Lab assay of single mutants.
Amino acid sequence: HNLTITQGKLFFHYNPKLCLSEIHKMEEVSGTKGRQERNDIALKTNGDQASCENELLKFSYIRTSFDKILLRWEPYWPPDFRDLLGFMLFYKEAPYQNVTEFDGQDACGSNSWTVVDIDPPLRSNDPKSQNHPGWLMRGLKPWTQYAIFVKTLVTFSDERRTYGAKSDIIYVQTDATNPSVPLDPISVSNSSSQIILKWKPPSDPNGNITHYLVFWERQAEDSELFELDYCLKGLKLPSRTWSPPFESEDSQKHNQSEYEDSAGECCSCPKTDSQILKELEESSFRKTFEDYLHNVVFVPRKTSSGTGAEDPRPSRKRRSLGDVGNVTVAVPTVAAFPNTSSTSVPTSPEEHRPFEKVVNKESLVISGLRHFTGYRIELQACNQDTPEERCSVAAYVSARTMPEAKADDIVGPVTHEIFENNVVHLMWQEPKEPNGLIVLYEVSYRRYGDEELHLCVSRKHFALERGCRLRGLSPGNYSVRIRATSLAGNGSWTEPTYFYVTDYLDVPSNIA
């Protein structure tokens, strides 16, 4: 807008934040220059609390790290170098490059900038070799853009010569660093050979998330399962459950009422301010606690030095998902009996873990797994792929695949051998790939016309006998059925096997 004052003059007093240069501009645009008398524009009460600059400061050096910015700028000295009290560095987070010096300023003089007072450097006698002032900004957020400017702080001049310097606002972004852990990993099994893994992005990506790394490792069953005799009275049979499938998407929606109208769909109840505040506090606490764990609990591995020492970490090797089922080394339970199943799973520490690289999504279907087997899954978020990966501390989750139908069934015939004193040795093959492992066998036998009897055969007993022995049988026709019990439950009964026990007292003698 054009402003013209045809008559009258300007009068400025007691404006401590208004620089004289701005008042002189007002004289020019209003056409009143030359009308004012000496005392109409006070030299001592206008701009006496402001830094009124008329020179431009330029930054000469900028260096960044993930949490620091090192700045240096060209030296500046007023005509009387004693008038320079120091520099004021202003900075704040700036997602967009549209910041002005006066953003967030209120009537009390406060604003949204963080201000650092910096002492002037030592003055050199040689004007050509003056030290460049600077400042190291610490405690910054990774991968965050900051708006920065600097200006001088000078003393009051009796001659009211307006001098000083100020830089333009520059924008500097800190470097990326390792992201925080992925949030809320959930693993479920939808079949006997697959596990579905879902997660949420890290709360602090500290860069642009480029991919996720998912490692999985087959877990050995508890050692007590191999040692305890679950045929003993009072000892509860062990059981394991597989990871249940995901709930429906509708039930997972946030901010939804727990109660549904019987007449149909209901609208979600909005969260109160107290609920939102509580969630923010919980989120802040979780982030602080995660940072504490990362800094205190997890110790970084030592990389190899120039002395030739090897990095103890196993090298990563990509495998196809079809090879995942046989990740671990199978060892027989008892070496003397080769027909026992290889369900003991000690994992070799030198073995390469299978892994998958996930790009542009937060889910993965891990296939080719062994049925009813526990897996430990390790999830890392990465925001750099080359020249070397920059990934987060791992988040861990466990899951067990679903049982395989008929995996616990005894394959092959049940054979028998009759000894003296009416002892019958029953023999059968253990299931080759049971659900988890076989903890015991149930032997059901009966003599024709009598009630059915049951015998429990422990895992250890089966390994020693290759089956079991029935003792003290009365003469007669017998039928026997056997079924295995694994961590997933009972298998199917075998087809009945028949044998006849004679009275050993009636056996004919070869003595003449």
Rank of each mutant, 00 (worst) to 15 (best):
S251T: 09
S344K: 10
R240I: 07
S342C: 10
I276T: 07
N339Y: 07
I482G: 01
S363V: 10
S444G: 11
E290D: 15
T340V: 09
L225H: 07
L280A: 15
S344R: 12
A263V: 11
H254T: 10
N255M: 10
E350W: 08
T307Q: 06
I377S: 05
R218Q: 15
E362A: 12
Q256C: 09
G264N: 07
V397Q: 07
E249M: 14
S444C: 03
E362N: 11
Q252N: 02
V358F: 11
K271H: 10
L470W: 07
H371N: 08
R376E: 03
S251K: 14
H371L: 07
L379H: 01
P346T: 14
T497W: 13
N295K: 12
T303R: 11
L453Y: 15
C468S: 10
A263P: 13
R400E: 09
G207R: 00
E249W: 08
S315C: 06
C266D: 03
V329K: 07
A394M: 11
V297Y: 03
C269D: 04
K460A: 10
R318Y: 11
V414P: 10
E378W: 04
Y396H: 14
G436S: 14
N255K: 06
T241S: 06
E356N: 14
Y212I: 11
C456A: 01
S305Y: 10
N422M: 06
R370A: 15
T502Y: 15
C269A: 02
D323I: 14
Q384M: 08
R240T: 04
S305P: 12
N326Q: 09
E227G: 13
P238N: 07
F462M: 11
S223L: 09
H454D: 14
V414M: 07
A463F: 09
P496M: 06
H461M: 11
T343H: 09
S344D: 10
T333D: 05
Y498M: 14
P314S: 15
L232V: 08
L237H: 08
I418A: 11
F372R: 04
G472Y: 13
L437Y: 13
V214G: 11
R318Q: 13
E350V: 13
P244R: 13
G308A: 10
S284H: 12
Y259I: 04
G325C: 03
F226C: 09
G207W: 00
E217S: 12
P244E: 13
P245T: 10
K361Y: 12
E282C: 01
A395H: 12
W216P: 05
H425M: 03
M427S: 08
K302F: 14
S479H: 10
C231W: 01
T333G: 15
K432H: 08
S492H: 15
N383E: 01
H454A: 06
F355Y: 08
